Structures are given as C-alpha cells and as structure tokens.
Computed example of a mutant assay.
Amino acid sequence: METLQVVWFLLVGVLVIGYAILDGFDLGVGFWHLFAKKKSERSAFIESIEPFWDGNEVWLLTAGGALFAAFPPVYATVFSGLYLAMMLVLLGLIFRAVAIEFRNKVDSPGWTRAWDFAFAFGSILPSTLYGVAIGNILRGLELSAVGDYTGGFFALLNPFALVCGLVGLSMFALHGALYISMKLDGEVALKARKWAEKTWYVFLLLFMVAVGYGIKSCIHGIKAIPLVLVILALVSNAVVFALNKKAKAKPAFITSCLTIACVMLAVASALFPYMVPCTNNPEWGLTVFNSSSSQLTLTSMLVIALIGMPVVLGYSWFIHHVFRHKVKVEEER
C-alpha cells in the first residue's frame, strides 16, 4: 500500500511538472504580449502557441483529477482553502481562451487592443497565483483536526507566498521569452533574447530569495535532496543564460524545461511525505500516507494511468513535431 501511495505522489508530481513546462511557455508568451508594440508581432505570438495552448491546459485538469481520485482529503483542503485563488486562476484562463478566439473577429483597433489586454491579463494572473499557491503549501496551512482550512484569505498573502508568486511569474516569463526566440525569427527573436536575458537576472534574484526564506522559515527544515535539486536548477539556469547569449534558441528552451523540472522536483521533495503541512499542529498535516484513497482505487487508477500516460505523451510529442516550424512575422505597411 505504501508503495502505491508514493507512486501516486510521483505521478501527480509528473503531471504538475508537465503542466508547468508546457503551459508555462504559453503563459510566458502571454506576459510578453504586453510588450509587443506591433500588431503583427502580437498576432505572431498568439499564432506560435495556437496549436498547443488548449492541449497544454489539459495537463492541469488531469493533475486535478488525479489528485481528487488518489488523495481526496488533499483535494478538498487545497481547493476549499484556496478557493478564491482558484477562481481567479479559472477567470484568467477563461480570459485567455476567449481572447485567442475573439481578438480577430472584428476589424477594429479598440476591439483588438481590449482582447490583447485580456490575453495578457489571463496569462499573468495564473502565472502569479500558481506560485502563491505553491508558496502557501510549502509554508503550510492552518488546518483543523479534520483537515479544513481555518486561516483567512489574507493569511494566504504572506511574504513567502508572494515571493513565490513572483518567482512563478518570472520563471514563466523567461520560459516564454526563450520560446518566442525559438519559434520566431528576425527582429522579434533578437528582442526576445534580450527579454530573456533581463528576465534571467530577475528570476535568479527572486529564486534565491525564495530559497533562502524557505530554508529559514519552512517547518520541515533542511533536507539534502531539495538542496541538491536547487543546485541543479541553478546550474541548469546558468546554462540557459549561456545558450541564450550564443543565440542557441532551441537548446536554451530545452534547458529551461529542465530548470523548471528541477524547481518543481525540489518543491515536491521538500514537502514529502506531506502534501499539505499544518502550521498550528504538525500532526494534523495531510501526508501521502494518511490522505490517500483505498488500495483498490489506487491500483485501478494506476492501470488506467499506465495506459493513458503514453498516449498523452505521444500526442504531445506529435503535435509539437507537426507544428515545429517557425512562425513568420508579417511586415506591417
């Protein structure tokens, strides 16, 4: 039974990492959408993610479904305690989806500008709130004996969580800039490399602040594996900077994927065996072992996952392979 519980902890982690890598770049593209001065550039940004963005968001839905089935008390605590934040995330994702579909439906500068702003807003809001949510879970929540969140909304806006929110935003912005430099060419790609270089410094500074603050205030103390993964993330991030400097867009983007994976693995290893630590009484915390479904449920789901995951991975690879070519930015007259 314990082996199954750990396996499902890892599987949920894989889904979250997959979402952070895949949806991370198109959320990052949405961030830079604000800084594109030409209409042709903004249109090219959206065209570069158009075949992927909805499929990327499926990873989030799958992760939520897996969490609900494998660890129901964790799902209940997180989604009820962070209810307002989750609704804001949903609002942002709705704005993104509608903006992509509607911005070209009416030939009007005001209409296009409004939906461009909605697209950027719908990208920045989830990027930040994901980090805030992870920061709060890392720090721990105030829970009752039955796992209900008892803290108020403003307790979620603590300094550590807000720093983590900025880490998430800067990490996705860097990832998105690298993706733009890989998918587009010419002047826009050069501009994106400069964006990536500037954002790299911001992400590094915020990440180091979050790590230092986390080690100081995290109730779990210092563990070897998270620290090793943090070091790997820093090394990988340094390689991203070097590759971006040399205009090696594709290797830089792939290395950025590795950096995000290391960051998320560091979070998971710092939490384990907890999934939701409790600040007011550690014994009330939700762990992998006290909040899982039955053995039958975990076993049945594992069989389904072993069949479904290769299909999802195969589809993701196929769609990115088919649309692997660069997007051309049209000349404005």
Results as ranks from 00 to 15, higher is better:
L141R: 10
R113G: 03
L184C: 05
F323K: 01
E197C: 11
V329R: 04
V74I: 13
L138T: 01
M87R: 08
L229Q: 10
N280Y: 07
A161C: 03
G151N: 05
K248C: 04
F154R: 12
G308A: 12
S40Y: 08
G140C: 03
N244W: 11
T77H: 01
T255Y: 09
L169P: 01
A85G: 12
Y19K: 09
L84V: 15
A196F: 01
F117M: 14
V209L: 15
F318E: 00
S300C: 02
D26W: 07
I49Q: 06
L229T: 03
P251N: 11
H175W: 02
A120I: 03
G165W: 03
C262N: 12
G81W: 05
F272G: 04
G168L: 06
I254T: 05
K198S: 14
I46P: 11
G140D: 02
G147N: 02
F172V: 15
V240A: 06
W53H: 06
G135H: 05
F318G: 00
F253L: 13
S269C: 13
L34S: 14
F207H: 11
T259K: 09
A155T: 13
V74W: 06
F95V: 01
W111Y: 14
A177N: 04
A20M: 13
V239Q: 10
K194N: 15
E330P: 04
L227Q: 15
E41Q: 15
L234E: 08
Y83R: 10
H320I: 04
Y83C: 09
V263W: 07
T287W: 07
P277A: 08
A247Q: 14
A114E: 06
R113D: 14
Y75V: 11
I215G: 12
L174Y: 12
Y149T: 11
H325Q: 12
P159L: 07
K326D: 00
L169V: 10
K198M: 12
K183Q: 11
S300R: 02
R193L: 09
Q295F: 03
L178C: 08
A224D: 05
N104W: 05
E283Y: 03
L4G: 10
G314N: 05
